Simulated assay, not measured.
Amino acid sequence: MNEKSLLATSDSQPSPAVQAVLEQEKKLITPRRIFYLAIALVILVYSGQQSDLSVIELIQGGGNMAEYISRYFPPDFRDWRLYLQDTIETIAMGLWGTILAAIVAVPLAILASENLCPSWLVFPIRRVLDGMRAINEVVFALVFVVAVGLGPFAGVLALFVHTAGTLGKLFSEAIEAIDPGPVEGIRATGASKLQEIVFGVIPQVLPLWTSFTLYRFEANVRSASVLGIVGAGGIGVSLYQSFRSFKYPKVCAILLFLIVSVAIIDTLSSKLRQRLI
């Protein structure tokens, strides 16, 4: 290759692919993006200070933590029948809390979807869902214990209200992400609004709704295990009593029951999702 051809090659413009990559890099690094990144870093640093994050303290307290955990072993399974019965009660609480929440979340999600309902209706429904999600299940359990007394029914109601807010939000986001084509096709046939939702919206979001509901069921079993602390039934009652009496081997046995039950639920729900989705 002679000197002229080399100069021509060196002076030639980059290929379109290279130019596209360079343009993309220029778009990624902009003053606005740098400003937003700086704001995010400031928020993270401030949040870390407010949370007293300290790796040094964690390392220094590692020995105390190991010594404390050693008190839990070996687990004490002498009351395993009681723990099994309480675990079944806890799973039942999570199941009914999830079922009731899913039933109520469907109409709330439809009313909270901007692509189906007007903004004057969407805004208050979303605020209701925010309130249901923002308040922890334990607080709801305290309220329902006063209303219906001690026992698992109060726990079911607490899980139901909180989970309805969570599922309502997730369901509405799934509705807003649907393909509008099928809905417009059904609307073109002169169908009513209800028929549009039943035949155009529900079939598209049902797989996601099923996945969300199964996940919330698994999460509700974990949450139900804590509600017993306020007298809302389930294995949380035995867990709280064991903690208060410093019977850590019994606490370990209860926790193992919870781990096994959640693992079984996760396995079964995964297989069910594969069949339904």
Rank of each mutant, 00 (worst) to 15 (best):
I43H: 11
I29K: 03
L276H: 07
L37P: 01
R133D: 09
E173T: 07
V230R: 04
D266E: 14
S15C: 10
L37F: 12
L170P: 04
C252L: 13
P74N: 12
S261Y: 09
A66F: 15
Q13Y: 11
A112F: 01
K26G: 07
I265R: 01
G200N: 05
K169E: 01
G228V: 01
A38E: 03
D11H: 02
L129A: 07
G234R: 02
M132T: 05
G63N: 15
Y240C: 00
I235W: 12
F140K: 06
V143C: 04
L121R: 00
S54K: 02
Q49N: 14
A105R: 01
L53C: 05
A101E: 03
L272T: 07
V237I: 15
V104R: 06
P107F: 12
C117L: 09
V226C: 08
Q19M: 15
W209M: 13
A8N: 11
A253V: 09
V205P: 08
W96I: 08
V156T: 08
A164D: 05
V156M: 13
E218K: 11
K193D: 05
V146R: 13
L41K: 07
E3N: 06
A164K: 02
S119V: 14
F217Q: 05
E89C: 00
I259E: 03
S172N: 08
F171E: 05
S242P: 13
R126C: 01
G200A: 03
I197L: 06
W120D: 06
E114D: 08
I202V: 14
P203M: 05
Y83M: 11
L58Q: 09
K247W: 09
V42A: 15
V148Y: 04
L150I: 14
F243V: 14
P152G: 04
A174T: 12
I125V: 15
L150G: 09
V145R: 00
G62Q: 12
L276P: 00
G63E: 15
V161K: 01
V237M: 14
E184T: 05
S51K: 13
A102C: 05
E218N: 08
R187Q: 10
R216Q: 13
T163M: 09
G165V: 07
A263M: 10
Q50C: 00
K193I: 06
I103T: 07
G231M: 12
K193W: 10
Y215N: 14
R33A: 14
L84R: 02
D179T: 07
A38I: 12
S51G: 10
L116R: 07
V139E: 07
S10A: 13
W80C: 02
P249F: 10
I39N: 08
L44G: 05
G94A: 14
L84W: 05
S238A: 15
A92F: 01
A177I: 00
F243E: 11
Y72M: 15
A109K: 02
L206T: 06
I235G: 10
S192R: 02
W80R: 11
Q85S: 15
T30M: 01
I88M: 14
T90R: 03
T213Y: 00
R33M: 12
N64Y: 14
W209I: 14
R71P: 00
Q60R: 13
A105K: 03
L214R: 03
S12N: 04
Y72E: 04
